[in-house]
Simulated scan of single mutants.
Amino acid sequence: MSSDDPTPEPPRPGRPSGSGPEEIPDWVRQLEREIRVGPAARLRIWLGRHARGLRLGVGAVLVLALLTYVGAAGYRHVRRPAAQPRAYPTVSPPAGIQATSAASAPPAAGPFDGTPAAAFPAGAAGITLPPAKATGGFTAKQVSAALTKIRTAMVTARLDRAFMSAKDRERLVRQFAPDERHYVREVLTDESFANVATRLAPGARLLPDEPRVKGRVTYRATRDDQGVRVLRVTTNFVWAYAFHGPRVVPGDGVVIVHDTLVWEVPHPSDVRSGARGLWLHDMGSYVANVDCAASDKGLLNVGTPREGTALATPEPDPDSLYDPDRSLDIPDTC
């Protein structure tokens, strides 16, 4: 007997049913009732049905475990410097002056910082001689020799620490012409000698820093009152000295000496041998930030500030005292 409605073919094992995953044929249920399935088989069946979801779940668990480990490792790394330090072998540094390397060494703070002297050359480098040229009967060689003698005398008088600390003036005196030495040695009193040279007061202590120096040297040929040809050299310099002592504001501990000296060197053909060499024609100076008691004796020491104002420093513009072009005519504040 035939029918117009075909009998549906039971789905083949291994091929998905068109009704979806939830529809299970009766013959499969019948088969499950007839066959006793053991625990191992049930596990394989469960794994087969949930394989994709299981893979995703295991992956998530592994990622979570990895993040947990990395996080814990990072925390240990961050906390490691705070752990109790452990002793390790060291060596003692050798004796002597040392320097420790640094990625970027900071500039050293100096006693002249904050003052105009910070931009001055150090020591004798601040004494620049003009070019020697033939003038007024003096040859270029004679001019050069005269300028060199004057520069040497200035270095001794203002920068030679051995001379500044000694009571003996002879190291400077013998640089003058023989006929001028009596005047320099005997006639110049201690106070007037300070116009020419620096001598330290007892107990005064300079820092190792070289004095800062700024000024100029000018020369010309002329004749003196007796008609003798002379090379007249004018030196105008500011000397800044750094002393030991407290520094509260810039310039504390810095003593300023500003001098203007007029030197003469006679033409060797116009004078006898005793008159050949250096002579002093004129001199003048001022000092600032000094100990007044020492200054009265022609000696140099740093003053003790009173209420933040340095001794022997006129107001209202102390920085102008560092200018070689400033007039020497200033009020005496000692």
Rank of each mutant, 00 (worst) to 15 (best):
A72C: 06
A95T: 03
A73W: 15
R49T: 09
P116D: 02
A122L: 07
P94E: 14
A105K: 09
R79E: 14
P89A: 14
V58M: 01
V58W: 02
P107Q: 06
G57Q: 14
R86N: 03
Q84Y: 13
A119T: 02
L67E: 06
G110F: 10
V63D: 15
R52M: 04
L62C: 00
V78R: 06
P121L: 15
G110M: 07
A87K: 07
G53L: 03
T115P: 12
R86V: 02
T68G: 15
S92G: 11
A124C: 00
I97M: 12
P94G: 11
S104R: 00
V91H: 01
S101Y: 08
P111W: 11
V91E: 04
A118G: 02
A83I: 01
T68R: 15
A124L: 00
P107F: 04
A87V: 11
T100D: 01
A117D: 06
Y88L: 11
P106E: 04
G110K: 11
P121D: 15
A122Q: 09
A117T: 04
L66Q: 12
T68A: 14
V63E: 12
P93N: 05
G96T: 03
L67R: 14
T115E: 14
I97T: 09
G53I: 03
P94Q: 07
R55L: 14
P93L: 14
A124N: 03
A99R: 12
P81W: 10
V61G: 03
D113I: 02
R79D: 09
F120G: 05
G110V: 06
A105R: 04
A82Q: 06
R79Q: 13
G96V: 07
A99H: 09
L67G: 10
R52D: 15
R52G: 13
G59S: 01
A60W: 10
F120V: 05
L54N: 14
V61N: 01
A103Y: 07
G53V: 04
A122F: 07
G74F: 15
G57F: 15
A117Q: 07
P85Y: 02
A124Y: 01
L67T: 15
V70S: 13
